Amino acid sequence: MHTMWKGSISFGLVNIPVKLHAATEDKDVKFRSLHEKCHTPIKYEKICPSCEQEVEAKEIVKGYEVAKGKFVVIEESELKELKGGGEEKAVEIIDFIKLQEIDPIYFNKSYYMSPDGGGKAYSLLRKALTTSEKVGIAKIMIRSKEQLAVIRVFANTLLMETIHFPDEVRKASEVPNIPSADNVSKKEIDTAILLIDQLTTTFQPEAYQDDFRLRVLELVEAKRTGKELVTVKEKAPVTEMNDLMAALQASIDRTKPQADKKPATKKKKTTKATKAK
């Protein structure tokens, strides 16, 4: 499993070296955008609309838009200074709470945590969380963004789940057209509850699947085995001869209209001797 972060967890005076691994993966069917004419993958280039030229990564700086078309430029060195101690690969557990106190709307992404040489300390935290039935609240810096996180035990493994800060969760009161009262009859409620009871079961994740993704993959396989494949049209290698021939042909094409014109009839010169006759 790929290691995406290395650092340590600390609670009190206990320090636990750990590695971070993504606990989930995106299995969406990904399509490439092709040119319909030749089936070549489309390139996406970073173009400056003002200079009308491609911009290299080293020429790009960060800017925060304070008004329409007006930006404050922030240097990487300034951001690094603001991170301070957060730049260090450390996760400090600042509080312990009950997991039930966190609404699922706050959860963002999950990461497995494996010990990086501190097996005993890792086991200590895992056992303490399990026995106390608590989870740890911590802060961590991932990809230049400070994250609030929950550290808990999942399948005998420490799991870190990043959670949204309160100001990142939109207020439910701002959702439009929500009815203020339940204008339903008792019979309707009883029928709905009966239906819920009939459909109630224990949660078994393996019982659910992405049917649309599977249908797309079946379609891809059917086209592949049926030889409905398209091939990228190979670009002819550019050589000096090709360039020369193209230039010569362009020159010929450019002069063709002039060659097709009939030459103007020359007038005979009139001399004094001719006039005298």
Score class of each variant (00 low, 15 high):
Met160Gln: 05
Leu194Lys: 14
Ile193Ala: 08
Met245Cys: 04
Arg126Glu: 00
Met1Trp: 15
Leu217Asp: 15
Gln249Gly: 02
Ala207Asn: 08
Cys38Met: 05
Leu159His: 02
Lys223His: 14
Ile102Phe: 10
Thr3Ile: 03
His39Phe: 11
Ile9Glu: 01
Leu199Asn: 03
Val220Glu: 00
Phe212Lys: 13
Pro115Phe: 04
Leu219Thr: 15
Lys261Phe: 10
Ile142Arg: 06
Lys267His: 10
Ala247His: 14
Ser10Tyr: 10
Asp182Gly: 10
Leu124Ala: 06
Val66Arg: 07
Lys127Cys: 06
Lys127Tyr: 04
Ala57Ser: 09
Ser123Asn: 07
Gly69Phe: 04
Thr200Asn: 02
Leu248Asp: 04
Pro166Val: 01
Lys187Ile: 00
His39Cys: 13
Lys62Ile: 08
Phe31Glu: 07
Pro166Asn: 11
Tyr122Phe: 11
Gly63Trp: 04
Leu34Ile: 05
Ser8Thr: 05
Ala247Leu: 14
Val150His: 01
Gly226Lys: 00
Ser8Met: 05
Lys109Asp: 15
Arg126Pro: 00
Leu229Val: 14
Lys223Met: 07
Asp197Leu: 10
Ile163Cys: 04
Glu87Ala: 13
Cys51Trp: 13
Thr157Glu: 01
Ile142Asp: 05
Ile142Glu: 06
Tyr111Gln: 03
Pro17Val: 04
Val29Ile: 02
Leu244Val: 12
Leu124Glu: 00
Lys30Gln: 13
Leu124Thr: 05
Lys27Ile: 15
Asn108Leu: 09
Glu168Lys: 12
Ser180Lys: 11
Asp210Trp: 07
Lys43Trp: 14
Asp167Gly: 00
Pro176Thr: 06
Lys277Phe: 11
Glu206Phe: 10
Gly63Asp: 05
Thr131Lys: 02
Ala273Ser: 15
Arg170His: 15
Ser185Gly: 05
Phe165Lys: 09
Gln53Gly: 12
Leu13Cys: 00
Lys269Glu: 11
Leu125Met: 00
Val238Ser: 08
Gln198Ala: 10
Arg213Trp: 03
Glu75Cys: 12
Ala128Ile: 13
Val29Leu: 07
Tyr208Trp: 08
Met141Pro: 05
Thr200Gly: 01
Glu76Phe: 04
Lys275Ile: 01
Glu234Thr: 03
Leu229Glu: 03
Tyr64His: 06
Lys37Gln: 14
Glu75Tyr: 06
Lys223Ser: 12
Pro104Trp: 10
Val220Lys: 08
Pro237Trp: 02
Gly7Phe: 11
Asp167Val: 07
Leu13Gln: 02
Thr274Phe: 11
Glu78Val: 13
Glu56Phe: 15
Lys267Arg: 14
Glu54Val: 12
Arg143Gln: 11
Asn15Thr: 08
Leu244Tyr: 14
Ala246His: 12
Thr265Cys: 07
Asp182Thr: 12
Val150Thr: 07
Leu214Gly: 03
Glu168Tyr: 11
Ser123Asp: 00
Tyr111Trp: 00
Ala250Ile: 06
Asp103Gln: 03
Lys145Val: 01
